[in-house]
C-alpha cells in the first residue's frame, strides 16, 4: 500500500505542530514554530492537541528523584529575582527574573551621560523626556532620551554590562496599564538611536516606562518579553 499521494502540501504544513511536539525539528525550525505558537491561535491549538495526545508517551518514563541541590539552585535563582513595584502589573511579576549580571561602572558611563545631557539641551517642542533605566541594584544601566520631535529616542549604556553573550537586549515601551511594546534591539556597548513606530508615538510620554529584557538572538519570538528584565525606568521631564 502506498500512501505517498495522500500526503499533500497542506498536510505537510499541518504537521509542523506535530513535528514540533515530537521534537524532530532543528533549533531554527523550533524558533519559527514558537513564533507561530505566539502569533497563530490555530497553530497553538494544534500544538496543544499533540501535546495532550503524544504526551501520553511520557507516562512510561520512570521517575527519578533529583538531588536536593536542584531545588537549592532554583531558590537561589528566585532570590536573585527582580523586585518590581506591584503597579507595573502581572507581567512584570512573571518576568521578574535575573541571571547573574556583572555590572561595572566605567568611564563609558560618564561619557554617555555627558552625551545625553547635550542631547537633552537641543531645543525641542516641549521639555525633554529622559529615563534612567536602573538595574535591581539601583544602579543605572541605561539612560534614554527622547529626541527632538519626539519620534525617536537615543539609548546609551550607562554601565558596562557583561553576562550572557548569547542574548539580545530588547527595549520595550510600557504605557500605563498596557502591555509592553517592542522598540527593537539595542546594543549594550554603544549608543543606539531608535525610531519610535508611529502607532506608539502618542504613548511616548512621561507616564510610560522603558525596560530592557534579555531575549534569544534576534529578539523576543513572541512579541512580548520572554527573558529577564535587566533594567527599567520611567520617562520624566528634565
Amino acid at each position: 500500500m502506498s500512501d505517498e499521494d495522500t500526503i499533500g502540501a497542506g498536510d505537510r504544513q499541518d504537521l509542523t505542530a506535530a513535528e514540533y511536539v515530537l521534537g524532530v525539528l532543528g533549533a531554527e525550525e523550533r524558533r519559527r514554530a514558537e513564533f507561530r505558537i505566539a502569533s497563530e491561535p490555530r497553530f497553538a491549538a494544534e500544538v496543544a492537541y499533540w501535546e495532550a495526545r503524544l504526551g501520553r508517551l511520557a507516562d512510561g518514563v520512570p521517575a527519578v528523584a533529583p538531588p536536593a541541590t536542584v531545588w537549592d539552585g532554583i531558590e537561589a535563582r528566585l532570590s536573585a529575582s527582580l523586585k518590581v513595584p506591584a503597579e507595573r502589573g502581572g507581567i512584570w511579576q512573571s518576568l521578574a527574573f535575573w541571571r547573574t549580571f556583572a555590572i561595572a561602572s566605567t568611564a563609558l558611563a560618564a561619557a554617555s551621560l555627558a552625551g545625553l545631557v547635550y542631547l537633552a539641551q537641543v531645543p525641542s517642542l516641549g521639555p525633554p523626556l529622559l529615563a534612567t533605566l536602573n538595574a535591581e541594584s539601583g544602579q543605572a544601566s541605561f539612560v534614554a532620551a527622547v529626541n527632538k520631535g519626539g519620534d525617536s529616542l537615543t539609548i546609551v549604556p550607562a554601565a558596562l554590562l557583561s553576562g550572557d553573550q548569547q542574548k539580545a537586549f530588547e527595549l520595550w515601551l510600557i504605557p500605563p496599564g498596557d502591555k509592553p511594546h517592542s522598540l527593537g534591539l539595542i546594543d549594550p556597548t554603544k549608543p543606539v538611536r531608535i525610531t519610535v513606530p508611529e502607532a506608539l508615538l502618542p504613548q511616548v510620554n512621561r507616564d510610560a516606562v522603558l525596560a530592557v529584557s534579555l531575549e534569544p538572538p534576534g529578539g523576543s519570538p513572541t512579541g512580548q518579553p520572554t527573558g529577564p528584565v535587566i533594567a527599567n525606568g520611567k520617562l520624566a521631564s528634565l
Binding site: G23, P66, V70, L78
Partner: peptide
C-alpha cells in the same frame, strides 16, 4: 512533580548533570 520531570529530562539528555541544570530551568 520533580521526580517525574527529572526522569523525562534525563531520558532526553542522557546526562545527569545536564538534566539537573535543565530541571532548574524547567521550574524557573
Amino acid at each position: 512533580t520533580s521526580a517525574k520531570l527529572f526522569g523525562v529530562c534525563l531520558r532526553i539528555l542522557g546526562d545527569r548533570s545536564e538534566a539537573e541544570d535543565v530541571l532548574q530551568d524547567v521550574y524557573l
